[in-house]
C-alpha cells in the first residue's frame, strides 16, 4: 500500500447520479504527490478539480480506483477514520472562507486545536504563532464580518495551518479576492510551504495562483491533460 508518495491516485473515477443517468466527474486519474509540493490542479469549471480535492480530503469517496492518502485508502476508511485523517493530517482552505461567523478570529483559528484536545496553554501559543504567520495578531478579537475578504482568507489559512498538517487542500482560495490580496495570500502560503514543508494542493483556474505553483496538473473532462513541473530560477 505504501508507495513512498504522500498521496497516490490510481485509476480514479468518480460518477455522480444525474437524473436517470450518471455524470462522470473524474475519469481515470493517475497521480502522485510528494511531501512539500506546491501544486495546482488547473482546469475550467466542471473539469473535476474540486471533486479530486474532496476525495484527497476524504470528504468524498472514489467510485472506482484508489486514492491513498498518507498510506490510507480513502475509499476504505470508515467515517470515524476519515474524520481522524482530516483532523490530524489535513487542512482545508475554501473559496468562501467558511469561517464561523459568530466566533472571533482567535476562536476560529483555535477550533481545529479544540478538536485535537490540545491543552489551553499550548493552544494559546499555537494560535498566536498561526496569527503571526498570516500577520493578523492585531485582529484576534474581531469577528469575520469585521474583516476584509483578504483578512478572512488569511484567517482561513491560519486555521488550516495552526495544527501544522501534512497536506493543505485549497479550493479556489483566491477566487473572491482582488489581485493585491491574492498575491498576499499566495506569498503567505508559499512561505509556510517553505518553512514547514507542508504540501499545498490548489484547485484553481486563477492565473495569479498559477504564477506561484511549482507543479501544474491540467484537468480536462475528468482526465489529466498535462502534468508539468515548473523550474523556478
Amino acid at each position: 500500500m505504501d508507495s513512498g508518495h504522500l498521496i497516490t491516485i490510481q485509476h480514479l473515477k468518480k460518477h455522480f447520479a444525474m437524473g436517470a443517468g450518471k455524470f462522470t466527474a473524474l475519469n481515470g486519474i493517475d497521480l502522485t504527490f510528494d511531501k512539500g509540493e506546491f501544486t495546482g490542479i488547473i482546469g475550467p469549471s466542471g473539469s473535476g478539480k474540486t471533486t479530486l480535492l474532496n476525495i484527497i480530503g476524504s470528504l468524498d469517496v472514489p467510485s472506482e480506483g484508489k486514492a491513498i492518502v498518507m498510506g490510507k485508502s480513502v475509499g476504505d476508511l470508515g467515517a470515524r477514520e476519515a474524520a481522524m485523517l482530516r483532523k490530524t493530517k489535513l487542512g482545508f482552505i475554501f473559496q468562501s472562507y467558511n469561517l464561523l461567523q459568530v466566533h472571533t478570529v482567535y476562536e476560529n483559528v483555535e477550533f481545529p486545536l479544540l478538536l485535537l484536545g490540545i491543552d489551553a496553554a499550548t493552544r494559546k501559543q499555537m494560535v498566536k504563532d498561526a496569527l503571526e504567520w498570516v500577520g493578523l495578531t492585531d485582529k484576534t478579537s474581531s469577528r469575520p464580518a469585521q474583516l476584509s475578504g483578504g483578512e478572512c482568507q488569511r484567517v482561513a489559512i491560519a486555521r488550516a495551518m495552526v495544527k501544522k498538517p501534512e497536506i493543505v487542500l485549497a479550493d479556489e482560495p483566491t477566487a473572491n479576492l482582488d489581485a493585491a490580496n491574492s498575491h498576499h495570500i499566495l506569498q503567505t502560503m508559499e512561505k509556510l510551504n517553505h518553512e514547514f514543508r507542508t504540501t499545498f494542493i490548489f484547485a484553481t483556474h486563477d492565473e495569479k495562483v498559477i504564477g506561484y505553483i511549482r507543479r501544474k496538473i491540467f484537468l480536462e473532462d475528468g482526465k489529466v491533460a498535462k502534468d508539468e513541473l515548473i523550474t523556478k530560477s
Binding site: K87, T88, Q101
Partner: peptide, 16 residues
C-alpha cells in the same frame, strides 16, 4: 450548512 460542512472538513464526526 456550510458551517456544518466545515465542521466535518475540520475532522468532526457526524455524531459530534
Amino acid at each position: 450548512q456550510k458551517e456544518i460542512g466545515m465542521y466535518v472538513a475540520m475532522g468532526m464526526t457526524r455524531r459530534q
